[in-house]
C-alpha cells in the first residue's frame, strides 16, 4: 500500500512537468492566442458560472439522447439476438451503421430537424445506439447453451427464461455497451453543439474562439474533461455495485 501511494505521488510529476513546460512555452510566445496554464486558471475562476450553466445544458441533452437509445436499442438488440435468423440476416446492416461516424450524420439531421434540441438529441441517440445495439445483440446471441438447457429442464416458461436467465447473463456485456455509449454521447453532444450552434458548452467553445479568448475556451475544455472523468468514475462505481456478482465470479478464474 505504501509503495502504491509513492508511485501515485511520483506519477503526478509527469503531468506537472508537462504543465510547467507549457507555462514556459507560453511565456516565451507572449501572445494571448497561446495562453499558459496560469491564464487558464484565471479564466476558470472568471468564467465558471457561465461554463457550469452551459455544461448543464449539454449534460441534460446527452442524457436525453442516451435514454432514447437505451429504451429503443437494448430491446431491439435482444430481439435480434434471440430470433437468430433475423439477427444473422441483418448483421451486415448493423456493421454498416457502425462504420458511419456520428458527426457525419450531423449535416443530414440538420436538414430534417434543424438546429434545435431535437436535432442534437437525435444525433446523440444515434451515437449511443451503435454500441448499445451491438453489445446487447452480441450478449443475447452468445448466451451459454448450457444455461438454456437448464431453463428447459426446469420447465421455465419463455418469459421466466428471459427474466431469470437471459437478462442477468447478458447484463455484463450490455453494461460494457452502455459505458461506451455514455462516453460517446458526451463526446457527440459537444461536437453537435459546436457545429449546430445554439447553446451548450460546445457553442461556448466556438464563441470563445470567435472572441479570441483561447484561455476561456481552454477553461471550458477543462470542465468537459472534469465532467467526463466524474461520469466515468460514477459509471464504474454503479457497475461494480450492480454487477458485483459478475465480478465476484470472475475473480477466482484469473
Amino acid at each position: 500500500m505504501k509503495r502504491e501511494t509513492r508511485i501515485a505521488l511520483l506519477g503526478l510529476l509527469v503531468p506537472l512537468g508537462i504543465v510547467i513546460l507549457w507555462q514556459i512555452a507560453a511565456l516565451l510566445q507572449k501572445t494571448p492566442l497561446f495562453p499558459g496554464p496560469g491564464k487558464v486558471v484565471v479564466a476558470i475562476w472568471d468564467n465558471y458560472p457561465v461554463i457550469l450553466h452551459q455544461l448543464g445544458i449539454t449534460l441534460r441533452r446527452a442524457s436525453a439522447g442516451f435514454a432514447v437509445a437505451v429504451v429503443t436499442m437494448i430491446p431491439l438488440g435482444i430481439f435480434l439476438g434471440r430470433v437468430r435468423v433475423v439477427g444473422k440476416v441483418l448483421e451486415p446492416l448493423m456493421d454498416m451503421l457502425a462504420t458511419l461516424p456520428p458527426p457525419a450524420i450531423i449535416p443530414l439531421v440538420m436538414l430534417f430537424a434543424g438546429t434545435g434540441d431535437w436535432a442534437k438529441i437525435v444525433i446523440i441517440a444515434y451515437a449511443a445506439a451503435v454500441p448499445l445495439l451491438m453489445n446487447s445483440y452480441e450478449a443475447s446471441h452468445s448466451i451459454n447453451p448450457m444455461l438454456s438447457r437448464v431453463a428447459k429442464s426446469l420447465h421455465l416458461s419463455r418469459l421466466e427464461t428471459m427474466r431469470l436467465i437471459d437478462w442477468p447473463s447478458s447484463l455484463p456485456m450490455i453494461a460494457t455497451g452502455a459505458r461506451l455509449a455514455i462516453a460517446s454521447s458526451l463526446l457527440v453532444s459537444v461536437t453537435s453543439e459546436m457545429l449546430l450552434s445554439t447553446n451548450g458548452i460546445g457553442t461556448y467553445l466556438q464563441r470563445s474562439q470567435e472572441n479570441f479568448r483561447i484561455d476561456a475556451g481552454l477553461a471550458g475544455i477543462a470542465f468537459i474533461s472534469l465532467a467526463g472523468v466524474l461520469v466515468n468514475a460514477g459509471v464504474f462505481r454503479l457497475e461494480k455495485k450492480w454487477l458485483f456478482w459478475h465480478y465476484r465470479d470472475q475473480r477466482p478464474a484469473e
Binding site: I7, A8, L10, G11, L12, L13, V14, P15, I18, P103, A183, L186, L187, V188, V190, T191, M194, L195, G202, L205, Q206, S208, Q209, I214, G217, L218, G220, I221, I224, S225, A227, G228, V229, V231, N232
Partner: peptide
Amino acid sequence: LSRGIRYISDVLQPIPPAAFVPM
C-alpha cells in the same frame, strides 16, 4: 511513468476531437 501517463490519458480522453480544433 506508467502512472503519470495514465493521469494524462484519464484527463484527455473525455475531450471530443472537435473541442481541440477552435483552440
